[in-house]
Simulated assay, not measured.
Amino acid sequence: MKRAVSLRLCRPSLLSITSLAIALMFGCTLLPHSAAAQSTRPGNIDLTLYAIDVEGGQATLIVAPSGGSMLVDTGWGGNNGRDAGRIMEAMKDAGITKIDKVLITHFHTDHVGGVPNLVERVKVGEFLDHGVNREDSDITRKDYAAYIKAIGNTPRRTLHPGDLIDIPGLNTTTITADGEHIKSVAGIKPAPNPYCANEPKWELDTTENPRSTGILIRFGLFSFLDLGDLTKAKEVPLVCPNNPLGHVSLYLVDHHGMNLSNSRALVDAIHPRVAIMDNGAHKAGSPEAWQTVHDSPGLLDLWMLHTAEGSDAAHNSAYPLIANLKGDSDGHYIKVVAVGDGSFSVTNARTGQTKKYPRE
């Protein structure tokens, strides 16, 4: 059984008979509501990360101990600015009022569509992306044009594999961009990948997905990998025949958990301790991808932003690990607080429960 030593923080207001049973199962320690709601970054010594629910798109907020911040993608546009509002809720919890950098992994509407709404409400210091749109589709051309118009005179930088992103207190390396990938990462020795031998050859699609800009963030002994919507045809060359990424503490499941991504050669090689799937209720979260991540060596938990309503119970995580249950569209996020010694905690905003993962 995959388990981690843990301490749970539960608000008494949540403790109905049902939730009390869940709390006892999780081994919860009871705290007053105000204590549970307080920032878990005393003295600004921790890294905080939010997997924000944008209904099957991506918006991931990273806040360094220094207060420096980066938002990876912005979710969808429209919906009365719903996704920008959810990003601002996470910003409020993190104690920030502006975003230093916004990284757009690629130019699909569920990643870049929210930029116009965001810049109307939030000051952004710099935009980062892989360059120009590479997809021959009207909707992607439209979203790319809207992005360029929305950022206006805000500084913009094109990233290439190996480029560093300056966020004080963090080591942030560009792993993939515009269809290319890094060969090695400073401080990590590439190692032969035994999982390559059984990996099929995958056909390269012509969308923006394989152009995704991916990053590896290191904070002491803690590491976080986000490769956007990178597909299998680009995942495999990244880690085969040698894996330049090493093992990671936290993995944002590629492509919202679609089976076009999350090859075993990648997922098993990076050996994540914990994974977060930013799926929607009716988007992605495929049984095949869920099973691949769930079965990866050493994985302790697979968290999900939504119940995947198109999958059976066997291919959804336990309810305490899901931020938004079936039919629940309240926009609950998953919050990660990491310490430089490699330990970290994950909080489900729906339940207020926190699970701690000790350093290895």
Rank of each mutant, 00 (worst) to 15 (best):
residue 6 S to V: 07
residue 7 L to N: 10
residue 7 L to Q: 11
residue 11 R to A: 08
residue 12 P to M: 11
residue 19 S to R: 14
residue 22 I to D: 00
residue 24 L to V: 10
residue 28 C to F: 08
residue 31 L to G: 02
residue 32 P to A: 14
residue 37 A to F: 06
residue 38 Q to F: 06
residue 42 P to M: 11
residue 42 P to R: 11
residue 48 T to P: 00
residue 48 T to M: 11
residue 49 L to D: 02
residue 50 Y to L: 00
residue 50 Y to W: 12
residue 51 A to P: 05
residue 53 D to S: 15
residue 54 V to S: 03
residue 57 G to E: 01
residue 63 V to D: 01
residue 64 A to C: 10
residue 68 G to P: 01
residue 77 G to Y: 02
residue 78 G to C: 13
residue 80 N to E: 15
residue 82 R to A: 12
residue 87 I to V: 14
residue 89 E to N: 11
residue 92 K to H: 14
residue 93 D to M: 10
residue 97 T to F: 11
residue 97 T to C: 06
residue 103 L to A: 05
residue 104 I to D: 05
residue 107 F to A: 04
residue 112 V to Y: 05
residue 122 V to S: 07
residue 123 K to W: 07
residue 123 K to M: 13
residue 125 G to K: 03
residue 126 E to V: 00
residue 130 H to G: 05
residue 133 N to S: 15
residue 135 E to H: 11
residue 137 S to V: 03
residue 138 D to H: 08
residue 152 G to L: 06
residue 152 G to D: 15
residue 156 R to C: 04
residue 160 H to I: 03
residue 163 D to S: 13
residue 165 I to V: 14
residue 165 I to T: 04
residue 179 G to D: 01
residue 192 P to E: 07
residue 194 P to W: 13
residue 194 P to Y: 12
residue 195 Y to T: 02
residue 198 N to T: 12
residue 199 E to V: 01
residue 201 K to M: 10
residue 201 K to Q: 13
residue 205 D to K: 05
residue 209 N to C: 09
residue 211 R to K: 10
residue 221 L to R: 10
residue 224 F to C: 05
residue 224 F to M: 01
residue 225 L to Y: 00
residue 227 L to V: 13
residue 230 L to G: 03
residue 231 T to D: 06
residue 233 A to D: 10
residue 235 E to S: 07
residue 236 V to Q: 02
residue 237 P to N: 12
residue 240 C to R: 00
residue 241 P to A: 07
residue 242 N to T: 09
residue 243 N to D: 00
residue 243 N to H: 00
residue 245 L to I: 00
residue 246 G to Q: 02
residue 249 S to L: 06
residue 250 L to A: 04
residue 254 D to M: 10
residue 281 A to G: 05
residue 282 H to R: 13
residue 285 G to N: 07
residue 293 V to M: 04
residue 295 D to W: 05
residue 298 G to E: 09
residue 300 L to H: 06
residue 301 D to Y: 03
residue 302 L to G: 00
residue 309 E to V: 12
residue 311 S to R: 03
residue 314 A to D: 13
residue 317 S to L: 07
residue 319 Y to G: 04
residue 319 Y to W: 12
residue 320 P to I: 10
residue 323 A to W: 01
residue 325 L to G: 08
residue 326 K to Y: 02
residue 328 D to Y: 06
residue 329 S to D: 13
residue 330 D to E: 15
residue 330 D to A: 14
residue 331 G to V: 07
residue 331 G to M: 06
residue 332 H to R: 08
residue 334 I to H: 03
residue 339 V to A: 12
residue 344 F to C: 04
residue 345 S to V: 08
residue 348 N to W: 00
residue 350 R to G: 05
residue 355 K to R: 13
residue 357 Y to H: 09
residue 358 P to A: 13
residue 359 R to L: 08
residue 359 R to W: 05
residue 360 E to R: 09
